[in-house]
């Protein structure tokens, strides 16, 4: 992300960053009190020892990522041929099929909820925004990994285009075609490598990899890298979405935080 983009960050995000940094001053009480701050815990903590383990994993990793360092970027010579197509490869959804037939010209990305100026972006709008290209490793929770180059608009810029978020905003809920949905907290939203990718390996995002737009949220396992994006909603709470755990994967019993 260029210097200019950093300066353009709306107040909400600077505050988020500052809040984030100030929280790390808690020192000794970090493990005890830290678990109760937003970035150290999933929106809903499971019961029992499993919930304790989830929170320990998330809190310890988030502490180690507190200065929002970038993930490793690889040389383009390391890009994997035949990047796997996992999970849904062509959503069985009438609207999606119609958009696909029209080469996604009619595809729109509504950004709504707790934003100051709700908008709806076309693929062209996204492509006109400042872009970021990154060659990163995709790590699947099942065990496989592959390297690809992704090009897209930082999620942060998209929210800026919607006038920035309101102070009570805590999570971003993203809906995908085919019934998939997933929630993310602001810690991931402000990361410079969190992008809405429309390009892969220098070409348009292929169908199997989530055309026309997928999310790259690089510090997570594959199941957080939502494909076939349909809409973005900024919310204060994950309640009311699916079973209320903050994502379809966590509804299924996976850990909401997928840093591993």
């Amino acid at each position: 992300m260029s210097k200019q983009q950093k300066q353009q960050r709306p107040e909400e995000f600077t505050l988020t960053r500052r809040k984030l940094i100030s929280r790390f001053g808690a020192l000794g009480g970090i493990l005890l009190t830290g678990c109760y701050t937003d970035f150290y815990r999933p929106p809903v903590i499971r019961g029992g020892l499993m919930g304790v383990a989830d929170t320990l994993t998330m809190a310890s990793q988030r502490m180690l990522m507190s200065n929002q360092q970038l993930v490793q970027e690889h040389d383009i010579s390391e890009i994997t041929e035949n990047f796997p197509v996992w999970n849904q490869s062509d959503p069985d959804d009438e609207e999606y099929q119609r958009l696909k037939a029209g080469n996604y010209v009619d595809w729109r990305l509504p950004v709504s909820g707790l934003v100051n100026n709700p908008i709806s972006l076309s693929l062209e709008d996204l492509k006109r925004m400042p872009s970021r290209t990154q060659t990163t490793m995709h790590i699947c929770e099942q065990g496989w990994s592959a390297i690809a180059q992704w090009t897209g608009a930082p999620l942060l810029s998209v929210l800026q285009a919607a006038g920035g978020i309101k102070p009570e905003a805590r999570y971003i809920m993203i809906d995908a075609y085919g019934g998939w949905y997933e929630g993310y907290d602001m810690f991931d939203v402000v990361h410079p490598q969190t992008i809405l990718a429309y390009g892969m390996n220098g070409k348009d995002l292929p169908l199997g990899n989530g055309a026309p737009v997928r999310l790259r949220v690089e510090r997570h396992c594959g199941y957080k890298q939502l494909k076939f994006i349909k809409s973005i909603q900024v919310v204060a709470s994950v309640e009311g979405f699916g079973r209320g755990t903050g994502g379809l994967n966590s509804d299924f019993g996976f850990h909401w935080y997928a840093g591993a």
């Binding site: 990793q61 993930v71 790590i139 690089e218 510090r219 997570h220 840093g259 591993a260």
Partner: peptide, 23 residues
């Protein structure tokens, strides 16, 4: 093997010679 460590310490993954080698 954890994606978070591609940010926390990519050196650790490289030390093993890659994520799959670590696995």
């Amino acid at each position: 093997q954890m994606p978070a460590f591609t940010a926390i310490s990519p050196e650790l993954i490289d030390m093993f010679g890659g994520r799959q080698t670590a696995r």
